[in-house]
């Protein structure tokens, strides 16, 4: 197992190195670097200013040289400086990354809990009243555009009812309050974004759980377990559900690795101070340091979560070995 994990980690590092070079080169080819955007927005910039700034930012050098400089800097533990926000990347991204992680993990946990439970219940009596009701709910959840759902939630729960804040991450000035007040305050701000993100995910997880469970429940070993006189709960959760886990592990792992791109719309609609929009803006503005760090984290998340999923398969199904 350890050898398998080490081999996969090494593969991951190689993939990150290769992909980072490709992405850096592609970004260098994109029009509108920071100096070009300055020229477009400031008519007073002179030809001398342009030469000076290009040299200053190293934009006069070929992409491979700039990439080598970037690798050199990052290997010393310095993530660089954001050209757009004029602050160190670490200071800019750290809190936002944490916020996005909290939002995504809350939404994912809630969606998994509700989605799997409803999916399993649906699979027990396919075509029944409960299944039909849940199916309509899941398809509606999957089909509703998240930005529209977000706006609707704001209109109903913030504007009309005034139950939850329309946007933000926490009450301004709340930092430094007692931990439980801050905890509940942040939770209050999380309700609508989590609902918005979850409603779609619940539908997806419900469909996966339903079909996986339906498939397993038809198999012979389930009939055998029932014939042995095992309780319904034991048959369902210990025998059937464990065997239905593999597709769910895959989809859950992929969802978690998608924390950056998945929450962009939700973060924008709810003015949630997450990393999703920052990543998008940094790519648009050619803010290399922010975009590259985001990219590395994003790729690492995908590869790591795939690795985690592969390991979990072994626990879910003992027939899978890593020798």
């Amino acid at each position: 197992m350890l050898t398998y994990i080490l081999r996969r980690v090494l593969q991951t590092l190689v993939v990150i190195a290769l992909l980072s070079y490709v992405v850096f080169t592609l970004m260098a080819l994109m029009p509108g670097d920071p100096v070009e955007m300055m020229i477009a927005s400031n008519p007073k910039i002179t030809a001398e200013d342009i030469v000076r700034l290009r040299e200053f930012y190293g934009l006069d050098q070929p992409a491979w040289k700039r990439y080598a400089n970037w690798v050199g800097t990052i290997s010393q533990g310095d993530l660089g400086y954001s050209r757009t926000y004029r602050v160190p990347v670490m200071e800019l991204m750290g809190p936002r990354l944490l916020n996005t992680l909290i939002l995504s993990v809350c939404a994912l946990s809630f969606s998994l809990l509700v989605g799997i439970t409803l999916g399993v219940l649906s699979a027990l009596k396919p075509g029944g009243r409960l299944d039909s009701f849940f199916s309509v709910f899941s398809f509606a959840g999957i089909s509703i555009p998240s930005f529209w759902l977000g706006i609707m939630l704001i209109i109903v729960f913030s504007v009309k009812l005034g139950w939850f804040p329309a946007g933000g991450t926490q009450t301004i000035g709340m930092e430094g309050a007692s931990w439980y007040r801050e905890f509940f305050d942040r939770g209050w701000y999380l309700v609508l974004p989590v609902m918005s993100l979850s409603i779609q995910q619940i539908g997806t997880f419900m469909r996966y759980a339903r079909s996986a469970m339906m498939e397993v429940l038809r198999l012979d070993f389930i009939r055998t377990a029932k014939a042995k006189g095992l309780s319904r709960g034991r048959v369902l959760w210990k025998h059937a559900f464990r065997n239905a886990l593999i597709p769910l592990i895959t989809i859950a792992a992929l969802s978690l690795s998608n924390v950056f791109s998945g929450a962009i719309l939700t973060e924008t609609v709810f003015s949630y101070q997450g990393v999703g929009k920052l990543v998008y803006d940094s790519i648009i503005a050619n803010d290399f340091n922010v975009a590259m760090v985001s990219f590395i984290i994003s790729v690492s998340m995908v590869l790591m979560m795939n690795l985690v999923a592969d390991i979990l398969y072994g626990f879910a199904d003992p027939r899978i070995s890593y020798s």
Binding site: I151, I155, S158, G162, P165, A166, G167, V269, F270, S271
Partner: peptide, 15 residues
């Protein structure tokens, strides 16, 4: 509030 579409909702809700 980067999404101008929700600016009005934020105004109406008192945010």
């Amino acid at each position: 509030i980067s999404n101008t579409g929700t600016m009005e909702a934020n105004l109406r809700s008192g945010t």
